[in-house]
């Protein structure tokens, strides 16, 4: 099995989807000849032609609207927003139009659209090139949101997303793009949307997280095993919508303690949602309050101090200690 980076895995998924399904189109700013600013779509235009892989003008709202118009006619658009910070320019088309199409038409039309976008911090990118806005999407009925933490999941989730009849926002963490290589099958396989994965088994406490924070959680879990003699289970959500509460509850029922770890600012967001759901669904299983590790409620930190702003291994270790108090 070949070793792949996340960039390569995503590229592979797009190429397979374009190859297998005539209805799939790939477009966005600079995705054609340039192959995208992160080179995810490199070579796709050459291979599949300018009508299926094309550059759009610098106009995100038009990208969203175009995707919906195309979806109405039977295409399955995979559009790219160059940086997730520019999702606001598309937000009306995404949240008010695309996400509600199926509801408005009572299923006679849907919007089988994938919006891909690079996001995430830790690579010294400026604000709006590094922020985690996924909480906004999670509060938008009608959207699914996938956030892979590794190349294998990225390819499988993207293929599932393209096959899914719902609009899916697919967020690609920039720090993970080329920092990890992993064995990834060459052909088609799918990772289902809505299935979290236990990436480390443990008995004492569950850390629930996603995206680039999965790696941090695993490091902290390792250290906790060595230094604190705590056995930590780590769950990678993989999609924040649908949220696999069944898997989370099952784990927390076993460990009795939970920590939620996110890269997005603390207030509201996915960590808050998971905590609330645990209160509703697993409170009698909990031995102590659920803790949350997240950056403060501020705009994304300017890049020279981002490492202090982002969650650290020390903070996670501290939470593992505190969750016993």
């Amino acid at each position: 099995m070949p070793q792949m980076t996340m960039v390569k895995a995503i590229h592979d998924a797009l190429a397979l989807a374009l190859e297998d399904d005539e209805r799939v189109l790939v477009f966005g700013e600079d995705v054609g000849k340039n192959g995208g600013v992160f080179r995810v779509t490199e070579g796709l235009q050459e291979r599949f032609g300018k009508e299926r892989v094309f550059d759009t003008p610098l106009a995100e709202s038009a990208i969203g609207g175009l995707a919906l118009g195309l979806a109405y006619t039977g295409f399955r658009p995979v559009a790219e927003i160059q940086f997730f910070g520019f999702i606001f320019e598309m937000f009306d088309e995404l949240a008010n139009q695309i996400a509600r199409t199926h509801y408005r038409y009572r299923a006679r039309y849907g919007a089988p659209i994938v919006i891909r976008s690079p996001f995430g911090g830790g690579v010294k990118a400026p604000e709006l090139h590094a922020d985690s806005f996924e909480g906004l999407l999670a509060q938008t009925p009608g959207l699914f949101v996938a956030i892979p933490s590794n190349p294998y999941d990225a390819k499988g989730l993207l293929l599932s997303a393209i096959d899914n009849d719902n609009p899916v926002v697919f967020l690609e963490h920039m720090k993970l793009y080329r920092s990890v290589k992993q064995e990834v099958p060459e052909g088609r396989y799918e990772v289902p949307l809505g299935e979290a994965k236990v990436v480390r088994e443990g008995e004492d406490v569950t850390i629930i997280t996603y995206g680039a924070m999965v790696k941090l959680a695993l490091k902290a879990a390792e250290e906790a095993a060595e230094k604190l003699d705590r056995s930590v289970e780590v769950i990678d959500l993989r999609t924040i919508v649908p949220l696999d509460m069944e898997r989370i509850s099952r784990s927390v029922k076993k460990t009795g303690r939970a920590i939620v770890l996110q890269e997005a600012p603390r207030q509201a967001g996915i960590a808050a949602e998971v905590m609330a759901r645990l209160m509703e669904e697993a409170i009698y299983e909990l031995e102590s309050p659920v803790l949350r590790v997240a950056p403060p409620h501020t705009p994304y930190a300017f890049n020279m101090i981002e490492d202090d702003w982002l969650p650290s291994k020390e903070q996670v270790i501290k939470a593992i200690e505190e969750v016993w108090v």
Binding site: S61, G65, L68, G69, A71, Y72, Q97, R104, R108
Partner: peptide, 26 residues
Amino acid sequence: PTLNIFTQSSPTGSQIPHAVGFAWAF
């Protein structure tokens, strides 16, 4: 749907890029 009439929604003008999508498909 039987007449190929597609809905706008409240934000004025949001239907304009949808039309462009149709036109691209055509």
